[in-house]
Amino acid sequence: MDRRDFLLSSSTGLAALSIPAVVSAAIGDKLLFPEVEKFTQQDWLTLATVQNHLFPSEEHAPGALEINALHYLHNFLGNPATDPVDIQFILSGTHSLQQFAKQNHSIPFAQLAIDEREKLLRKFEQQPEGRRWLTNILNYILESLLTDPVYGGNPEQIGWKWLEHRAGEPRPPANKRYWLL
């Protein structure tokens, strides 16, 4: 069983997994970029859980896990072109959500049942900052789904294939990703 099958077959989803397993599965064993050192394992778990909730895996449609959404987000937050303000925004929102979960349920967000997560995220969305954060997280998921695989998401063009999308040629090589040109 590979890691994807393992995660998908987990009856209670990501919440049943240990923190190292989820984060390792999503962002691999690569060293964290210095820019994202402030993100703890707990933060990555919260982000992975939110991504999985917003864009769940289905039998015939890839979810956040299959499109490497956390790995993609990690790459975005760590690349040198990313505005530190954007990094801080993602981090602050993650902490706000964690705090919000504790206030409402007294347990970490990642341990909530799916319907409880939904209710909590909808409440979080009512706050202007919460909505802005969720909008951003959703956009990064969709980037992971549909940008060129050279950026770390959309492995083997899984997103393009799902949506019968034709990419344009020429595609960007690794040495000409946007922050390198």
């Binding site: 980037e143 549909l146 990419a167 090589p173 000409k176």
Partner: peptide, 15 residues
Amino acid sequence: QDYFKDELKTSLRGG
């Protein structure tokens, strides 16, 4: 040789 069909660079990151 520097122009690619890269939505991130072209449209999303103001490359």
